[in-house]
Design a binder for these strands. Structure first.
Ligand SMILES: [Mg+2]
Length: 337
DNA sequence: TCTGGGGTCCTAGGACCC
DNA sequence: TCTGGGGTCCTAGGACCC
């Protein structure tokens, strides 16, 4: 019988930082933004010590400082996490080829062996070779395994298969499902659906009327713990690449905005050229001071890796904004054709 | 106490064509 | 001249995840 495992490194980003700064062990550590809680930014990861103060991912750094003045604040260092991620995945790949990497610190594994045995082997290999601890969820499919790893934290193993699903999940709120967030949970609640068991018994047609033709059936499947997607070890090609920047202070000068769009687009075009991924469209994103976000997309006449054509599209897209209000964020995204 | 950055997928409306 | 249906492309926005 095939089982799916979901491996998730515990407090990954914070753990990587503590590994290279052992003196931080046992202290509340917050990684986010540029590591300066007097500036704009949110928490990427808080370690377990910091979470005891109510700190969590997505919380503004300013708030975190107020709630936990003794915390150590560190800037995000993506290269370090990408490096650590490669180390972890290498350890996993030495154990199994049936591995689907999911972000920096997560992976799905398919196995025909005893899943608990494989899980323990993974945990000790990752710990011995990288010094990081991880949790492992076991399921019949990716959805079950992913939710199970949440229950396994920290450093544990948890089994959630079709057999356990109704008992373990039935009475929980729909928001605990992977793919249902605050907005969808609220919308479901307005339809009288609060618990996973109620979602499992819901009428697809009725949900489709509210959520759309594909999302309706998918939601009911979620409620039942059904997921037919396979574990795929084929690396996926990115469909888009983007850059965005929140200014330290709101910007009123349109020249500053257009200079930033040009800079970002040039970098993205360089990547398009060097990786030979033609760009099919460019999206410019502006977030105005009251946190209202607008996008303008411009399709290229034909997909291109040429900086001139990509820049041209970005300038056209930007030109469709009225930049007569303070701006807090600017971003550029390219879609590959 | 104002709310990051990098991604994926879905929905919906209008244009346009058959 | 009006009605109607379906398919695809383009654009804008939304929700979610790490
Ligand atoms: Mg993790």
């Amino acid at each position: 019988m095939t089982a799916v495992l979901h491996v998730d490194v515990d407090e990954f980003v914070a753990a990587v930082e503590v590994l290279r700064r052992p003196e931080l062990k046992g202290k509340p550590v917050v990684v986010g933004g540029r590591g300066d809680p007097s500036k704009r930014g949110v928490i990427s990861t808080a370690n377990y010590e910091a979470r005891r103060y109510g700190l969590h991912s997505g919380m503004p750094l300013r708030t975190a400082l107020r709630k936990c003045p003794g915390a150590v604040f560190l800037p995000v260092d993506r290269e370090a996490y990408e490096h650590a991620s490669r180390d972890v995945m290498e350890v996993l790949r030495a154990i199994t080829d049936a591995l689907e990497v999911w972000g920096w610190d997560e992976a799905f594994v398919e196995t025909n062996d005893q899943p608990e045995v494989v899980a323990r082997a993974i945990q000790s290999a990752v710990s011995n070779k990288t010094g990081l601890s991880c949790s492992v969820g076991i399921g019949d499919n990716k959805l079950q395994a992913k939710i199970a790893s949440g229950f396994a934290k920290p450093a544990g193993i948890y089994r959630l298969t079709a057999r356990e699903w109704p008992e373990v999940m039935g009475g929980r709120r729909t928001e605990e499902l992977w793919g249902i967030g605050r907005k969808s949970a609220r919308k479901l609640s307005e339809l009288g659906i609060d618990k996973v068991s109620e979602l499992a018994a819901a009428d697809e047609e009725r949900l489709s009327l509210s959520f759309g033709p594909r999302t309706g059936p998918w939601l009911v499947a979620l409620g039942r713990g059904v997921d037919h997607s396979r574990v795929s070890s084929v690396p996926r090609r990115a469909r888009s690449r983007s850059l965005e920047l929140t200014f330290d202070e709101d910007v009123e000068d349109p020249h500053v905005i257009s200079a930033e769009v040009t800079r970002m687009t040039s970098r993205l075009a360089e990547h398009s050229m060097s990786s030979d991924r033609p760009v099919s469209s460019v999206t410019v994103k502006i977030r105005f001071a009251p946190f209202v976000t607008r996008t303008r997309i411009r399709r290229l006449p034909e997909p291109s890796i040429e900086v001139e054509a990509i820049l041209e599209a970005a300038i056209v897209a930007l030109g469709r904004f009225e930049l007569d209000r303070p701006v807090r964020l600017v971003g550029v995204k390219v879609d590959f054709g």
